[in-house]
Design a protein around this nucleic acid. Structure first.
Lengths: 205, 205
DNA sequence: TGTACATCAGTGAACGCGCGTTCACTGATGTAC
DNA sequence: TGTACATCAGTGAACGCGCGTTCACTGATGTAC
């Protein structure tokens, strides 16, 4: 970082980074513009050279989050290779991995109260992320006889709900609320049982 | 309500009611003491006759919420009658019903960032609620051969996670994010598939 | 290579605002005699 | 039944604070000639 004086060099990125740390630490509501500016070594007013204000910064972080998220999911899904089942399970693991590795982004996306329609770009990339999950579900559900096959959107909604629930209830650090099981294990077994219920895994084991 | 002048009569209850409305409308972070006081027709300072401050009021609301929650769950579980399965499913429905009917309480409990150990009474009643869910899971899992039976705590954690995920992602009013399915249906089918995966429901249908 | 100047990313002071909380007070209520 | 007085739930003014945002400004950078 060549912050040799008056001009910061890459303030935009530094602000986002500072905001992410604050959000991860104190929640999306505890994040303030002024504090992010201070953490980036800059006057609050300087933020307005790069963002339209607090909400705009938050929206940008959510947008970046969805971008990373969609990318990770696509990578994990790997176009359904080697098998629809393996790809699906990899996608589920990627979900949790994202939540753990990018807590600030995750919170900005799902806990900041920001609307997914705040900006068109945000809506677009959120839709892209959702589409990956749904595609993974659709591919996998092709192995179910059509007449007992739930809609792929419902399938993926179930998995998304369970993943999100595990993150919110059991993967956060609130002391005393600690889960009796590691979140990864919880989610993996949960998804396993669910897939067995769909007849996509053998009933035993 | 006999609020005939200087003395309010039942300010404590009125404040809680006002706070609940505000939390449900604007989220637990959007709730302010001053606004609640104003909604109750009273000066902010009057609040301090009944609560130690903002946090104390929030904790009391969460406590009340857990109380109602635990009661509803116990009622729905009905000591495992008529069957462990029916009781379990009723409990799941009660979870969602609680989230819908008491949104302010639900948010104060799960989204306000309040620690379940904020006060001993809060910890106690939260434990009571958790115990009902776990008991329902334990009873039901007795119908599974012991060697392929997951721990009841894990079982209930799965259901809790899916329920919470459905509430957060699909039962909230954020326009545009509306689920493709009604939350009740989503949760019911999700739990159904999960139970089938445990061999507690017949594989067909 | 050096100078003049436009561009632009930052400063710093100030704003109005609503917040939670405190304090001395006052008006209503209820009880003792 | 009436009066004196203690209790207590409310008022209203004030506080210090940090927030997001604005504004005129200034110092650094980069480009034209």
């Amino acid at each position: 970082m060549a912050k040799a004086g008056y001009h910061h060099g890459n303030l935009r990125a530094a602000l986002i980074e500072a905001a992410l740390r604050l959000i991860a630490e104190k929640g999306p509501q505890g994040f303030t513009l002024s504090e992010a500016a201070k953490a980036a070594g800059v006057t609050p007013a300087a933020v307005y050279r790069h963002f339209d204000g607090r909400d705009d910064l938050m929206a940008e972080i959510a947008r970046q989050g969805y971008e990373i998220f969609a990318g990770l999911m696509e990578y994990a899904f790997n176009d359904g290779q080697p098998t629809a089942l393996a790809a699906f399970e990899a996608t589920g693991r990627a979900y949790l991995a994202f939540a753990r590795r990018y807590p600030g982004h995750y919170m900005a996306m799902f806990e900041s109260g920001i609307s997914v329609n705040a900006t068109p770009q945000l809506a677009a990339v959120a839709a892209r992320a959702r589409a990956v999950l749904e595609e993974a579900a659709r591919r996998l559900s092709e192995h179910i006889p059509p007449e007992k096959r739930p809609p792929a959107a419902m399938f993926s909604a179930h998995i998304w709900a369970m993943s999100h629930g595990v993150v919110e209830l059991f993967a956060r650090g609130a002391p005393g609320t600690r889960a009796p099981f590691p979140p990864e294990e919880l989610l993996e077994t949960g998804i396993g049982i669910y897939l067995r219920g769909l007849g996509l895994l053998p009933p035993d084991c």
